[in-house]
Design a protein around this nucleic acid. Structure first.
Lengths: 338, 338
DNA sequence: ATTTGGCACTCCTCCCTTTTGATTGCTAGG
DNA sequence: CCTAGCAATCAAAAGGGAGGAGTGCCAAAT
């Protein structure tokens, strides 16, 4: 085996061993566990080289090697070429197909929990949402004399509600009439189209139309649906977070919720799984974690995000393959809601 | 001061001091901080008595006193009589009144986060939900030739959706006609009323009606709306959970979610705040915590639960008063959605 | 040029001991 | 019934090796 080739093997072994074991990998262990035909001293020469190149570091002088972000990146590119994990696919499929009677959101939570258990990390999933919402139907329910509840139904089975007040008394009969009229008038429109359609409207009709457009705009602004988190317990059980301060730091970050935007703002290509390792992440609070994310659904129609958050030392092979498979399955399922 | 009276003072002081400080309370500290006119030795006689009676324990021989569940219960009954906390009320009111444009659920989350910050513990809140849902409106959207999406709008602005399949091709026009007919036929009915209404229905109409009743029944079964949790970070920052195993134990319990039923299954009286301390809770996993819960809304119409979960050593006075006040405010706000 | 065995050195971890300081329990006297 | 004083108790912090795992490097072997 050529020197360069062995170095690559050593690096791969270090990454894989550290992923499963979470302890620094010693030269002796590398030789023994993987049956290399060289002595530990030789491996030490290689690790010295890898350290110079920035692939590994030693937590202290007489400790084994642990991979750097660069090493994980190298590893991910390496395995990216031929990833194949049939058992995961079968396992997921069998569960996912019994789509729930309990509604979409509940089902997504179940799916997320399933994936979390599989990859033993935190899973975040958002419900599918179109980029540009289209109006489908509205209802008006009288609350008091001057107030009504506006219920807006959008395509992709999304709904929103808003309280509305009028200058004068409006009866339920009148509200129903207004609702029917406007439902007909605005069917299939986006928020800007509704605002653009300037016909002669009564004061109440204008009030409702504005409110309607506002509601749809608000929906448009949400880049994704409400995110569900599952497996927090699993993430925090990882050995890197055993100390309570580091656990609290994670929790604090997760509750602030800005991190989510960071994840969701990414550009996705169809079917692609994105891997962001440690300091590759622009968000400092997440730089000691890795994110693996994927988009599902049809980008032009409704789409959502499913992602896994774990320590940098996470099982990239398994997670990437699970996510690839899951996002394909979810895309198929989402077609039914189109 | 009579002996019995002083003992009560000593107990109250121990509870209050332990609530704020989280460290065992020494006899000397009791005398000094609260300016008692007796010596530490005298207080020690009192604590010896209180220990015999089961109100306090000592974590080890040469440590101060910490209250037992019995002591907290005594304390809660004591303060229950004249609780008054105006600053909380004003603080909450000012924020809550700017009701959100972002929808009910989002607003509830904000309220929960606000309360969590105030009481520095985990807050759980459920969206208001009527005990018996009434049908308001339905829509049918064609998916494929044989499949449609059923969108059900209920009173109190609740919505649910369900995928539906037919034996034969059904066009969107036909679906719209069916939707209008059934919306009219079933307006205001509960699930059982819908099932009872046996008129001569076509095969498709029967299929939809059954599905509709099923959806409403499912909503009825949910005792409360989707719960929101806020302030997990605050709860786990409490000194009793600094060790990572105890933190993980809490997280594990919270993710299992069965505990929620325990909380929500309680019987509530209008406007009442319930306090469950430690082992008073039937659920073993929660026996090292205290729960303070309250119902809001109108029991006959929509109602929800708001509760605080904290260590047994939590600020009962502040939490009870905050919750009393908040639940009243939420009830007022909920009226608008009736 | 690469590999290897050997050896000194480093640094972490574990365990044991000691010290320190706080606090109680008890007893005898006010 | 209260108090002062004192011995007893225990946790937490600080110290101190001993042990051990593992590297770095050098000189010799391949």
């Amino acid at each position: 085996m050529a020197v360069g080739e062995r170095r690559e093997t050593v690096l791969r072994v270090i990454v894989e061993d550290y992923i499963t074991g979470a302890v620094p990998v010693a030269s002796k262990a590398i030789v023994e566990k993987y049956g290399l035909k060289v002595s530990p001293a030789t491996v030490r020469n290689d690790t010295a080289y890898l350290e110079r190149e920035g692939y590994i570091i030693h937590p202290h002088h007489s400790a084994g090697s642990i991979p750097t972000d660069k090493a994980y990146r190298y590893y991910v590119e390496l395995i990216g070429e031929d990833i194949d994990f049939p058992p995961v696919e079968e396992y997921l499929t069998s569960y996912i197909l019994k789509e729930a009677k309990e509604g979409l959101e509940q089902w997504l939570k179940t799916v997320a929990a399933l994936l979390a258990g599989l990859v033993r990390n935190l899973v975040v999933i958002t419900s599918p949402k179109p980029v540009r919402c289209r109006f489908k139907h509205l209802d008006l329910v009288s609350l008091h004399d001057f107030m009504a509840l506006l219920i807006v139904v959008l395509y992709e089975a999304r709904i929103s509600r808003q309280v509305l007040s009028f200058q004068r008394k409006v009866s339920q009969d009148e509200l129903t009439r207004l609702a029917n009229k406007l439902t007909l008038a605005y069917a299939g429109m986006t928020s800007s189209e509704i605002l653009a359609k300037k016909e002669d409207l009564s004061s109440e009709e204008r009030r409702i139309s504005e409110c309607l457009a506002e509601v749809i705009t608000a929906e448009d602004k949400l880049e994704y649906g409400e995110p569900h988190l599952e497996g927090l317990y699993l993430l925090l059980s990882q050995p890197e977070f055993t100390s309570s301060p580091s656990m609290l730091r994670i929790l604090e970050v997760l509750e602030k919720e800005d991190w989510l935007r960071t994840i969701l703002r990414q550009e996705f290509k169809r079917g692609e799984v994105k891997v962001v390792i440690g300091e590759e992440n622009p968000e400092p609070a997440l730089q000691h974690l890795s994110l693996i994310t994927s988009q599902y659904g049809q980008p032009d129609r409704a789409s959502g995000i499913v992602g896994v958050i774990g320590p940098k030392r996470m099982d990239y092979a398994k997670t990437i393959s699970s996510l690839t498979c899951l996002s394909a399955l979810l895309s198929d399922a989402a077609v039914e809601y189109t």
